[in-house]
């Protein structure tokens, strides 16, 4: 779509501080660029500010200073409503805790990914079926999440994050709740998706997990190290 040089994510001198006495600076003048088709790992110890960074990248939190451009759109000046719409259309989330809804089937959970985009139910179901096949869980589409293993649940969550066709997939410690075999399967899936052209930004504290990405960004004390 866009030229390869146009970044999906561009943070310019982003800072985030929380009110207090004294105020706490979690992020300090972070510059970050993720280009289309990249698989980036953001690595840092706990307390380094990487969760705050992910919240900002996911438009769940706003920077105190600086600018954040998503697909070239300046997200720091737009309304809550438009930010919600950007989340629905351009961002896919994968969480450490999966966040599948227990009362819905696997297929229904996946189709939630298109709910707030306003896709018709039939189209959402069609996409969910296709993506469940893609992550290798087509045979479990009527199952409830609690009957799935951790690795399977995370693959369902990944399928959900792809329903809207996002510009970037944001993964927050996606293997944090998984055993090493399941973790490996999930990371392989990310690699495959990346090979198919999906942009992935993954946050982790685990250097072994980060090694699977093509580029690593280290964040320490709220600052990106080069």
């Amino acid at each position: 779509m866009n030229a390869a040089s146009s970044p999906v994510i561009a943070l310019r001198a982003v800072g985030r501080s929380f009110a207090g006495n004294p105020p706490v600076d979690i992020l300090r003048s972070v510059d970050l660029r993720v280009d289309r088709g990249e698989f980036v790992a953001i690595v840092g110890p706990s307390g380094s500010g990487k969760s705050t960074l992910l919240n900002i990248l996911g438009l769940l939190d706003s920077p105190t200073t600086g600018r954040y451009l998503l697909d070239g759109i300046d997200t720091t000046t737009i309304s809550h409503r438009r930010r919600a719409r950007l989340r629905a259309a351009r961002l896919g989330f994968v969480f450490q805790a999966f966040h599948l809804l227990p009362h819905l089937t696997v297929a229904e959970n996946v189709s939630l990914g298109g709910l707030y985009l306003g896709l018709p139910a039939r189209e959402r179901a069609r996409r969910a079926d296709r993506l469940l096949d893609r992550v290798g869980l087509g045979h479990r589409r009527r199952a409830r999440p609690r009957t799935l293993s951790g690795g399977e649940r995370q693959r369902v969550a990944i399928a959900r994050s792809l329903v809207a066709g996002p510009s970037v997939l944001l993964a927050d410690e996606p293997t944090g709740n998984l055993d090493s075999v399941s973790a490996d399967a999930v990371l392989s899936l990310f690699s495959e998706l990346h090979a198919e052209g999906v942009t992935v930004a993954m946050i982790t504290h685990d250097p072994g997990v980060a090694a699977r990405a093509h580029r690593r960004v280290r964040i320490v004390d709220g600052q990106v190290l080069r």
Binding site: A84, A88, A89, L101, G113, Y116, A164
Partner: peptide, 16 residues
């Protein structure tokens, strides 16, 4: 609360 957070991440507005 987790579901609410998820739905917001999926693009739900406060109004939704």
């Amino acid at each position: 609360i987790g579901e609410i957070g998820l739905r917001r991440a999926l693009g739900a507005t406060r109004g939704d």
